[in-house]
Design a protein around this nucleic acid. Sequence first.
RNA 1: GCCCUCGUAGCUCAGCGGAUAGAGCAUUGGCCUCCGAAGCCAUGUGCCCGGGUUCGAGUCCCGGCGGGGGCACCA
Length: 572
Amino acid sequence: MTSTYDILYERLAATFDRVQPGAEPVLRQSEHGDYQANGVMALAKTLGRAPRDLAAEIMADLDLAGIASVGVAGPGFLNITLLASFLDQQLREVLVDQRLGVALPTVAKNVVIDYSAPNVAKEMHVGHLRSTVIGDALARMYRFAGHHVIARNHVGDWGTPFGMLIEHLIDLGEEQALASLSIGDLDSFYRAARKTFEEDDNFKERSRQRVVALQSGDPETRRLWQLLVDESISYFAEVYAKLDVTLQPSDVVGESYYNDMLESVVTDLEAHGLITVSDGALCVFPPGFTNREGEPLPLIVKKSDEGFGYAATDLAAVRDRVTNLEADELLYVVGAPQSQHFDMIYAVARLAGWLPESVRCEHVAFGNVLGPDRKMFKTRSGETVKLVGLIDEATERAYVALEERKSDLNDRQRRELSVQVARAAIKYADLSTERQRDYVFDLDRMLAFEGDTGPYLQYAHARVRSIFRRLGAPWDGASASFALENDAERSLALGLLAFPEAFHLALESLQPHRLCVYLFDLAQRFTAFYEACPVLSAVGHTRDERLALCELSARTLNLGLSLLGIDAPDQM
RNA sequence: GCCCUCGUAGCUCAGCGGAUAGAGCAUUGGCCUCCGAAGCCAUGUGCCCGGGUUCGAGUCCCGGCGGGGGCACCA
């Protein structure tokens, strides 16, 4: 089906286009009508005409027969009010549309989304939360939109720390080491290795040699390295399962994957004449970047010690993703502090011809998770906060909160539900504000069942579902029609029909919080409707109509939440 | 010093160049013999400052101020 917004937009665009090719109608939802088109004033300006005259001309040409009525207001706003018959028709179509009005794209794009990126042999901590949650929401949204998502979990699986980690593994003995890693105690493993490294010169020297052996491909060293990697990946999988994140072990394409491409990255850059040797390092100086002293800032591709830096790996990844994966879009869900680094990577990749203008490439930056003191979230002792601990605490609190409510649920159901509620709380809190902003991690607020929270939206959904439980028999809404005589019904209907545009807005701007804003607004429209319009006690076609509105509300909330990676349980 | 980012109600946040800037918490006051009160209704307060662009600026540009971050071999 074609969404309400798209139908209006097409009609308006056709008329605007006749007046001035390419003119933008600027169609928005409105308080003054159902929608308003603001493009007339701007167009009048460029044409040097009186806005109201132009508005009249556009209205005369505009074909909205059977769709809406239009009026001119103020300096030249076109206020659009949808006809009851049109709303009825649209709602009937959505009712039988699994996609709730969201059209599939004419061409499916290959979208590479780089997110999560924990480090091997290190605990996942709050620092990984945002990348993981935002990246996964975007992945779900792109998939639903009909694109082909290639998730890339760029784990830190290479570099000098692996010398000491492997030596520590040897010292502990493989079995002992793997046992400690498999229970998820990655941090103490890492810390112990680090401690020995700092205190024991002999160990330090062994570690150095081990790094050399690893880099030169020594089979035994590689085997031990692989053990660490595999253990870590299966641990990450547990965390992802806890968080209900769609990342799979097969999405792990760590830094080491690009090792064999690094030399050719350098030769490729050299061939383009981009490499400059500076202080013994091979650098590219993309225009427009300067350091503290105002001198050109290098992207160091190969260090003076002959080692490759992460810039080389990131460049190799760009080239690989565009050339081999045939990516149409590259998204990097990485914290805001790295923005200069990525700007430089993209600039160099464009200079080298690896990144055509046709490929959209964006650093999906996000702000920090802050503690109650408004500084980077740390434990009281100043350590990083483990992700599993955070989830467990949220789950426990959700359980307590659920216990306090009176409900028909038994203890086992409450246990399962508390997991879903905890995830909703954490994810929604992260997704519901503009990405770039920092936010304070506050479990009390996130877990609140009232206000703009994940649990509240779950509740709103569960409340709709309960209506159908009370109904007893299965409900067949196929014959429903929509008169929308009550204001609350009409407002809810407009909200439901606006799902496609809200979804696209969130997707195109890479801002999941816009979907959150929509869902919360929809939930409020629903509760207003629910207060004003009895459903089960209604009769005849009114009852069917209201049940159909309930059905659509539940499905829209469910779908919207699922796109954010949040469960919508039927009962709470 | 340069660059990026954020600054909206007491607090936490929406606001895609358009009309009277909106929500949620919190405050105060109402609403359950009625589909889940985890709800609803009512209640007061605000765009950091100064310029500019524009018919129109919370939104775009410039300059301040304040918070956060980045600025050559760690990723």
